[in-house]
């Protein structure tokens, strides 16, 4: 059973998640104009920057986050930005979109100079997120759980972060049970995606190095 307080928390987080989206202009550019590899690279870096800003705005709305030590706030965001961005992209790509949009976005990523060894795990992750058919509440809470990971580098007060993360996990666990009564493993599957995200984070660092060199 989800308590009234948990329901209020969930609403707050979903509202914040929906409110903070990448600017419409970017989305439009991504879908409308044809670019070569170099322009795709530049566009994707701009979008990535915008996604980090969106992530920060969302995170500021998570109750308790701004009460954490300021440097810990930065450490958490720095440690989770890549994972949260992949998560958001996966959710965008698994949304229902007009015909051809998903293919166009995929093409843009594939033709931006990223080598195939990184593209494969990236798209495999996008696919595995799509298969979960998460509701908005689950997406928003999973993103909050990702940001509030206590063992990121340079986090000093891990216990304070853990308490916040536990609050989110508790709501998410209850929500999964309510949303997917036929699938008792659903919550565990969501947490499994977080492990997959950590692997992607590792790939991402290597990918950036090779991308810059190219």
């Amino acid at each position: 059973e989800i308590t009234k307080e948990q329901q209020a928390l969930m609403k707050l987080i979903v509202d914040a998640y929906n409110k903070h989206q990448i600017p419409h202009d970017f989305a439009k550019k991504l879908l409308q104009e044809q670019y070569g590899a170099e322009e795709n690279f530049l566009l994707l870096t701009e979008v990535a920057t915008s996604q980090v800003q969106v992530l920060v705005e969302f995170t500021k709305s998570i109750p308790g986050f701004l009460s954490l030590d300021h440097e810990d706030q930065i450490a958490l965001l720095k440690g989770s930005a890549v994972e949260a961005t992949y998560l958001r992209s996966a959710q965008v790509l698994s949304k229902k979109m007009p015909t051809g949009h998903v293919q166009l976005l995929e093409e843009r990523i594939r033709k931006s100079g990223i080598s195939e060894e990184f593209i494969t795990p990236m798209f495999s992750f996008y696919k595995s997120i799509g298969e979960l058919h998460m509701v908005q509440e689950e997406q928003a809470l999973l993103t909050a759980v990702t940001v509030l990971t206590p063992d990121r580098p340079y986090v000093k007060d891990q216990q304070a972060v853990e308490r916040l993360q536990e609050t989110m996990l508790d709501v998410l666990r209850k929500l999964c049970a309510l949303q997917h009564p036929q699938e008792p493993q659903y919550f565990a599957r969501l947490l499994g995606r977080l492990t997959e995200l950590r692997t992607l984070n590792h790939y991402h660092a290597e990918m950036l190095t090779s991308w810059r060199t190219n």
Partner: peptide
């Protein structure tokens, strides 16, 4: 350009609220 700004700078600026910088 934004692509030359480090991740930490982007985060610090966004946390302080001056996105337009």
């Amino acid at each position: 350009p934004a692509s030359n700004l480090g991740l930490e700078d982007i985060i610090r600026k966004a946390l302080m609220g001056n996105l337009e910088d």
